[in-house]
Design a protein around this nucleic acid. Structure first.
Lengths: 347, 347
DNA sequence: TTCGTTTTGAGGTACGTACCTCATGAGCGC
DNA sequence: GCGCTCATGAGGTACGTACCTCAAAACGAA
């Protein structure tokens, strides 16, 4: 038998006694309030370390006058993945309330950096402890993130990171690894066959660039007999993607595979179906959405690479909670896995 | 802007006022204590429903004299997966403490139903609110689970379920779907090639049987040109598996793939490496452990199918917490995904 | 009715932290 | 020594639930 823990947890009282200070001083240190000498802060922190003191989350949440407020800012539009992120937040809102977490969602225009920046600027610290954003890489967003941080709002990036900013955590997958994984599968599917077409949404998007780079790396290193056609840009639109795929198929009667690293999968599926070559071409796409799900079930798509929206939202909420309760802490790192789905393990 | 919630949460006081009873009565109903007429219970429950009252977890945990105690009973031995489950529990023990959760681990002899039953019998309700077990399908375990439930200990099954018992939740993957997924990948890897060897640990294990069944289903339905050799039983032992694989390779010089649905992966890797045919044969194995990780990195193994131990433990703890706080509630269902890992998306 | 039992009410304390006020201490420059 | 500021202490209340005791009320059976 393997007992893990142990005796009674240390409380603030224990910390005060050990540090030789009063409860009020410990409280000031713990909650980063002013009016404590540096030397005293050190004494208290030493006591905290010595006792292994951990703030009791239950009591801490209970004692706060207000709940923690987390605001999600999520792009709106036809992108199914963003919609499922928003849905995941909505699903968590109820249960989270019992944990004293208040979740808000704000939908803003997709790919509009100014809208995101304005939205961040409009957040009041009194109404929002933590903002979770899907950020594009834009200077105005970076400025807004830093301003929000200075106002006392914690910022967490989701899906797409904003390195160089004061964001306190990033929750998302490694898109280069996702591209490598796709190549690794595609290479094994198409050994000795030849051509693979690659479709992107836009090479201005960082995650798409990353996926493409990873895909190219592995194809070049391990599957030298495979020739990459493209990338073609479908701008994440169904109609445009369908047109591009139709052209691609016509130009390459010997095409062995297609990798769509962007959105617009409904167009991909319809074009392939119309061509009559569905099933003979190996297809890898991104995100488990309605179109890819249909594609997997009908055999048009072989594999969907996915970042689990529920998992990402759960991780984001966890990070927000941990940061809000102890803003000096590092964000907990709960790695988001790259999901690989075939018809047989659809969730 | 999309406001989700709302006004102040209802408290027990509100429930008491609405139901027209005293706080004490509400408390008796909420905590299932005796001494309340059925008609009164109904009134209180109606008020709870009307107000949408949810017990405040923070306050609830704080008010309890003792922490929630969750005991994990996990098989010991050379099985790396079980070791990583235990490790995952140990990793969570610290952080969980801040949430008033006390985690214990008991390791018992693997595949020993009597040991598990005895262990369950020895759990005292005063020292354990919830037991999480990796159960084999054995009548003695079933009896012990029901006895524990009657003593007031909640039982949750992990990895392998125990249908027909009074266990309150099951956390694990769908092993049939895992087998189907493996077949779907293997079929695409080996189109037109011919023979695929299948290795199991033991066909007495339910999860192994399920995986085999799923694998066979999909090969038969979709890849009729593939012939399944085996299954061979390696009993999850490294040495025995190595010997079986060596024989298999010698007997089938044209083998295109190997699916190991059991453990013993170190033996699989060493036999393949020794044969000189590593890399020319597609290999799918189960569980991300040291041997499979090495196999993926060296190119001996193409794909590892995994059930994320951290995710399973997290889900089990979540279920235990929810059940312990409201034992009449249904266990929260957080589906465990089937993880698919290549060298390129190793975590 | 009367006795006994069961149900209900009233009111308390406790959990550990957050946050508040007020008083007192130490330390400073002059 | 003065007055001043800043650091700290002392002690309180509040959060929402759990759990306790004791008394009062309701109910049932004789």
């Amino acid at each position: 038998m393997n007992e893990i823990a142990t005796r009674r947890r240390a409380t603030v009282h224990d910390v005060a006694r050990t540090a030789g200070v009063s409860l009020a001083t410990v409280d000031r240190v713990l909650n980063a309030r002013a009016g404590v000498r540096a030397a005293t802060i050190e004494r208290v922190e030493a006591a905290i370390a010595e006792l292994g003191f951990q703030r009791d989350l239950s009591a801490s949440l209970l004692a706060r006058a207000r709940d923690l407020r987390v605001t999600f800012i999520i792009p709106e539009g036809s992108n199914e993945f963003m919609a499922s992120l928003a849905q995941a937040v909505a699903n968590r809102a109820g249960p989270a309330l019992a944990d004293r977490l208040h979740l808000d969602i704000i939908r803003i225009k997709a790919l509009d950096a100014m809208a995101l920046a304005h939205c961040l600027d409009s957040l009041q610290p009194s109404a929002c402890d933590c903002a979770v954003i899907v950020a594009g890489e834009d200077p105005s967003v970076l400025v807004a993130v830093d301003a929000a941080t200075r106002r006392g709002i914690l910022v967490v990036t989701l899906v797409s990171d904003l390195p160089g900013s004061s964001r306190r955590a990033f929750i998302g997958i490694d898109n280069t690894a996702a591209g490598r994984t796709s190549a690794s599968l595609m290479g094994r599917f198409c050994t000795g066959h030849g051509k693979v077409g690659v479709i992107a949404g836009s090479l201005h998007l960082r995650d798409h660039r990353d996926r493409l780079e990873g895909f190219r790396q592995v194809i070049a290193a391990e599957f030298a007999d495979i020739e990459i056609i493209g990338p073609i840009e479908g701008h994440d639109e169904h109609a445009e993607t369908a047109a591009q795929v139709t052209t691609l198929l016509a130009q390459h009667p010997d095409l062995a595979g297609i990798y769509n690293l962007g959105a617009g999968n409904a167009g991909l599926v319809s074009a392939l179906t119309a061509s009559g070559r569905a099933g003979t071409i190996r297809v890898i796409a991104h995100e488990l959405s309605e179109p890819t799900r249909r594609g997997l079930l009908s055999g048009v798509i072989d594999v969907a690479i996915d970042q689990n929206p529920d998992g990402e939202i759960r991780a984001a909420i966890g990070a927000a909670r941990a940061l809000a309760l102890d803003s000096s802490a590092a964000a907990p790192i709960e790695p988001i896995e790259i999901g690989i789905f075939l018809r047989d393990n659809l969730r």
